Structures are given as C-alpha cells and as structure tokens.
Amino acid sequence: MAADETAADPSADELLASCARMVPGLQQTFGGICEVVLHDYRRTDRSVIAVAGQVTGREVGSPMSRIGLSMLRRGDDADDDLNYVTRLPDGRVVKSSTLLIRTAAGRVVGALCVNLDVTELRGFRQILADLAGTGDEGEPLRSTTFSPEPDAVIQEALADAETRLGRPLTRLTVAERTEVFRRLERTGVFQLRRTVPFVAERLGLSRASVYNYLARVRAEDAPEN
C-alpha cells in the first residue's frame, strides 16, 4: 500500500474521521480496562490520530507498534488480527484486536485497535483453575512495546534480534548481520523514518552499508515472477 496512493484518495480522510467519532463511545462501553486507538497508516511515525482510555500509554501522534508495522508491510493483503494477547514491558497482559480500515477500492488506510487490560481477569482465572484442580499452563504471549516515540519501537526490534542471536549486535559475522536485517525487514520496522540512522549507530555501520544490507535481503526475499 503506497502512501502517495492512499493520500490521494479523498475517501480515506472521511473514513478515518467517521471512525474517530466512534473511538470515545467504544472505550466507554468497556470502561477503565479498555483503550481504543485509531491509526492512520499513511503516517507510520505518528500514526495515532485518536485515542481514548489508558492501557498502553499512547497518545495522538504516537507511532505504530511492531504489530502494526508488520500488518502494514503486508499491504492490502493483510487481514484483521483478532483476540491476540501480548505482555507489556511492565508485566501487564493485554488482549487486543486490530481491525483494518479499507476504502471502497479495498485499499488499507488505517486500523482501529481495541486493547483490554486483562491482567486481573487472568489472575481470577488462575485462582479458579487452582480451586478446580485443573491447572493452567496458559498460552505463550507476544511481547511488544507501545510507545509515543518511534525510537522505542526500533530499539525493541533490535533487542529482540540481539536476544535471538545471543551476541552483541556490534560483533556479528556478515551472515549474522544479514539475518538481523532480514528479521528487521520482516517486522516492517524500516517503514519508520528514523530506522536507518538508528540501526547504523547500533550496529556500527555507515548508512550506506545499512542500505546495502537492506537491498540484499529485499532482493533475496522478493517473490519470483
């Protein structure tokens, strides 16, 4: 989904404006455990254009998370992501749904996200499971950062790559560095404007080298005609 194409679609602004009017009402329906966030996918570094409630701490002008960037990377072929569970850096557990907003032509221009802080509810479930003697192993949780600053989203992606490799990002072989770029590209994080200089600094590379690695992994991952 090209930003210049969606920006030229006059229906996109009307769609997002209509959704923005629904944000406060949706949030009040679920109460204090709920946060509703509206994203304009045409502006990744400041995609949040409306928010009600306080769960992830975001505000108008905040960037997309890695989950949103990953959906954006799939373009118009992306699907709604419903009822997924994440763990925030402070340990709270959030159940979310991301509903894509499309123009009449099917072009994705934004997303409406509903986040529910279910930390205490999960605690009650565990108590009931213990009382019933059934136990509760629980499902694996995604971990993600929601931040008003794009740098935090980029830092999270780099920290995840470093953890997976088990080595500092400044001490990688060419093959390992290529794999880092492949992982970063697949998360969609390079859609944020500050990613290239940020990655160059963290990996001890020039910006030209970053672009070279990025071009290489994009060429290798490009579908064959």
Results as ranks from 00 to 15, higher is better:
K95I: 04
S47P: 10
R43H: 11
Y84N: 06
E35Y: 08
R46G: 09
A105R: 09
V60C: 07
M64K: 05
G61K: 11
A78D: 10
C34W: 04
A52K: 02
G61V: 03
D79T: 13
A50M: 12
R58H: 08
L69W: 03
A105T: 03
V51W: 06
D76R: 15
K95V: 06
A78K: 02
I33F: 02
R74A: 13
L88N: 04
C113L: 11
V93T: 02
A105V: 05
R125M: 08
L100H: 07
A111D: 06
R87Y: 00
S47D: 05
D81A: 10
G75H: 12
R107Y: 13
N115I: 11
L100F: 09
L112F: 14
L82W: 11
T86R: 00
G68I: 09
G123K: 05
I67D: 01
G123Q: 15
V37E: 01
R43Y: 15
I33G: 00
Y84Q: 04
R43Q: 10
S70P: 07
Q126M: 10
V37N: 00
V36E: 01
V94Q: 00
T86S: 01
G110R: 09
V114W: 07
S47M: 15
L116G: 05
G68C: 12
V48C: 13
C113S: 14
M71T: 10
L116E: 06
T119H: 02
G61Y: 10
L38V: 11
D90W: 04
T44V: 11
L121S: 14
G31F: 06
D117V: 08
A104P: 11
Q54V: 13
I33N: 01
S62G: 12
V51G: 08
G123H: 09
E59M: 12
R107M: 14
N83G: 06
A111G: 10
D80H: 08
E120N: 09
K95R: 14
L116C: 10
L121I: 12
Y41Q: 04
D90Y: 02
R87D: 00
S47T: 10
G91P: 02
G106Q: 13
R42T: 15
Y84I: 03
L82N: 12
A78L: 10
D117F: 07
T56Q: 04
A104G: 10
A52W: 03
I101G: 07
I101C: 15
G68V: 03
G68F: 08
R58P: 00
Q54H: 07
L69Y: 02
G110L: 06
T119L: 04
G53Q: 04
T44E: 05
V118R: 03
N83D: 07
T103R: 01
V60S: 08
D40I: 15
G53T: 09
G91W: 01
T98G: 08
G123M: 07
G57R: 09
D80G: 09
T98S: 10
T44I: 07
R92W: 00
E35S: 11
R58S: 04
L72I: 08
A50H: 14
T44F: 11
R102T: 12
S62C: 12
I67Q: 02
P63S: 03
V109Q: 08
I49G: 01
L99W: 14
V93G: 00
E59W: 06
L88S: 01
